[in-house]
Computed example of a mutant assay.
Amino acid sequence: MTIDIQQLTNDFLEGDQDRAWDRIAEHKILMEDSHLTYEALTKAMQRVGKLWEENEISVADEHLATTTCDYVLSRYAYTRKLTSKNTNGPRALFLCIEQEQHYLGLKMISLLFQEYGWQTKLFGANLPLEHVIDTVEEWDASVVGISVSIMSHVERLNHYVTELEGLEKTPEVIVGGRLAAQYDLSKYCSKETIVVPNLDQVRLWLENRKGGDGHV
């Protein structure tokens, strides 16, 4: 893969949606392999995050980069004909816990599930627990993916996991996000919770599930 991550980062920061998309679309391998595409987008947004942490860019710059990356993800999904409505596929919903705003990684995971034939619902940022539970029960979701990126939110993560895994019809709970890659979150989860530090682990889980229960 020869895409220039620094140039892609600059496209995000400038809000240049078309140029950012062109950088992806001009590489055939990226249009054929979502893993490489998500990896490139993740690296670019990690650079944005580092610049923000070092006060090199403003909050407004970070928000513009996020919406530009979101556009590229949506256009990629449309071009690849990914769909959340895979008839007869198992059901998974994805959300950020309350007050958590970072959703791009979660969106990539949702799209990856779609590639494997799952029906998905992506709720994005800041979803209160009561709405999560209502949707799980009404929609009969078998998997709930939760993103957490800020350390002050991990106690809230524990509450989400406990309540979801205590439902009569218990969904599998998958926890990801920046903190999952940086810290051991096991004490905020249960033995049944699946913690995925990166997209490679998500893909591996999907491959194992594909071969294990015949749903996908």
Rank of each mutant, 00 (worst) to 15 (best):
V136A: 08
H27R: 08
N126I: 09
D184K: 00
D11P: 00
D16N: 15
Y38M: 05
V132A: 15
F123W: 14
R19T: 08
P171H: 03
V143D: 00
H215C: 01
W21F: 15
N158D: 13
S74D: 15
T120Q: 01
I109C: 10
N208P: 02
F113M: 12
R156P: 01
D134R: 14
E168V: 10
S84E: 04
A92W: 01
L206H: 12
F94P: 06
P128E: 10
M151N: 07
T37G: 03
E62N: 05
G117S: 12
D33N: 14
I194L: 10
L106E: 02
M1A: 15
R19M: 05
L93D: 05
T162N: 13
L8S: 05
W52Y: 13
L41C: 05
L164A: 09
E32A: 12
C96A: 02
L185V: 03
L104F: 05
I150A: 13
R19G: 01
Q201W: 05
L167A: 07
E26T: 15
I109N: 01
G177K: 03
Y38V: 03
T135A: 15
R156A: 03
G49N: 07
T87R: 13
V72P: 06
L167S: 09
A181P: 00
L129S: 04
Q99H: 11
N88I: 02
I174S: 00
N55D: 14
A20I: 12
Q6Y: 15
L106A: 07
M151E: 14
G124T: 10
W52H: 07
T162R: 14
L167W: 04
H102K: 03
R91N: 06
G15H: 04
Q182W: 02
M1N: 11
G176L: 01
N55G: 07
S34P: 03
T135E: 12
W52E: 06
L51R: 14
A181K: 12
D18A: 15
V175N: 06
V72K: 01
T66C: 08
V196E: 03
N86Q: 09
V216T: 14
T87H: 11
